[in-house]
């Protein structure tokens, strides 16, 4: 120890911590003990009766060390198993529910087809029935209640690769300049309608006159379902008229500028055959089926007083 104290000042004096760590990896006590042993062999008495010999002591310590390691490893493994089991259970839950949802939506599709068929047969073959059926299908088309296929435009919008990219004008810009917001989606959808689109869907969500495009926190909701980028807008319509009209719209020109300014993703593509799903049927809040409404109106007076007395 003493020889380390008199070593001349090192050039890298301030870095002694790292150097010491690398140089004195072996406990200096070993060297001290060896020196003491060399100085006087009788320095250490032979192990007294009942005390452990040097080898036994090391063995006991090594068993202890192994025990410590084993226990720690067992603990870590136990904890990992516990959290892994919870994760697996959650995953299985999610998968089960997704399968159930898929099955139910298939059932909805089947039932819808059955309803449409029943309605068509119910309307009959007469001229009046056929006129009504034609009117119905036209209405369904415009209200988005049926699946639609046809040629159209596929517009893809995406956040900038690095959402923190700035405007490049040196002012620093705002965080989130490179993100697509709900109003951007609204603008593009409106431009597509104006360009002559007959049916539009965003990431598989069909738009109707009642569909809201809004944001909740960071996510964009379309028809109250959260979407994640990239946003793919499929618009069915007369492509030859729609494409130039949309490309010439103020919105499309604005987004082209954004692409070069902020690195937003914006692309328009002609597709010969787009397939749009049906929208969820509108919820009836006030309207009632005439048959049940008549019974409800007769029961109402008898129910209302009992409900109003307390």
């Amino acid at each position: 120890m003493s020889d380390r104290l008199v070593t001349p000042e090192r050039v890298d004096g301030s870095m002694s911590l790292l150097v010491d760590m690398m140089g004195d990896a072996l406990d200096p006590a070993y060297a001290d003990a060896a020196r003491r042993r060399a100085a006087g062999p009788e320095d250490r008495p032979a192990p007294a009766k009942g005390r452990l010999g040097p080898l036994a002591r090391a063995v006991v310590l090594l068993v202890l060390f192994g025990l410590l390691t084993g226990v720690a490893a067992a603990q870590v493994r136990g904890r990992a198993n516990a959290s892994g089991a919870a994760r697996r259970a959650l995953l299985a839950d999610v998968q089960r529910q997704t399968t159930a949802t898929d099955r139910l939506s298939r059932q909805v599709d089947q039932l819808r087809t059955a309803v449409a068929q029943a309605r068509d047969t119910g309307l009959g073959d007469g001229a009046r029935g056929r006129a009504l059926a034609a009117q119905l299908s036209a209405l369904e088309l415009s209200t988005g209640q049926t699946k639609v296929t046809g040629p159209g435009l596929l517009v893809t919008l995406n956040d900038a690769q690095d959402p923190s990219t700035t405007t490049g004008n040196g002012r620093g810009g705002q965080l989130g300049d490179g993100r697509i917001y709900d109003r951007d989606l609204q603008d593009v959808v409106n431009a597509l309608w104006a360009a002559g689109a007959e049916a539009i869907s965003v990431n598989g969500q069909r738009l109707t006159a009642l569909t809201a495009i809004r944001s909740a926190g960071e996510a964009i909701l379309v028809d109250f379902r959260p979407l994640s980028p990239p946003y793919r807008l499929s618009a069915v319509g007369d492509v030859d008229a729609m494409q130039p009209a949309f490309a010439d719209s103020a919105t499309a020109r604005r987004f082209t500028t954004y692409t070069s300014l902020y690195g937003l993703g914006f692309a328009t593509q002609r597709v010969d055959r787009l397939s749009l799903p049906a929208a969820t049927p509108p919820e009836l809040r006030s309207a009632r089926d005439a048959n049940t409404a008549s019974t409800a109106s007769t029961t109402k007076p008898t129910v209302a007083p009992t409900g109003g007395t307390p």
């Binding site: 080898l55 090391a58 063995v59 006991v60 090594l62 068993v63 202890l64 060390f65 192994g66 025990l67 410590l68 390691t69 084993g70 226990v71 720690a72 490893a73 067992a74």
Partner: peptide, 15 residues
């Protein structure tokens, strides 16, 4: 040899 065995014994015991 004996130390290695002691180490292995400890690990097995702990596990």
């Amino acid at each position: 040899m004996i130390p290695a065995l002691a180490l292995a014994l400890g690990v097995v015991l702990g596990l």
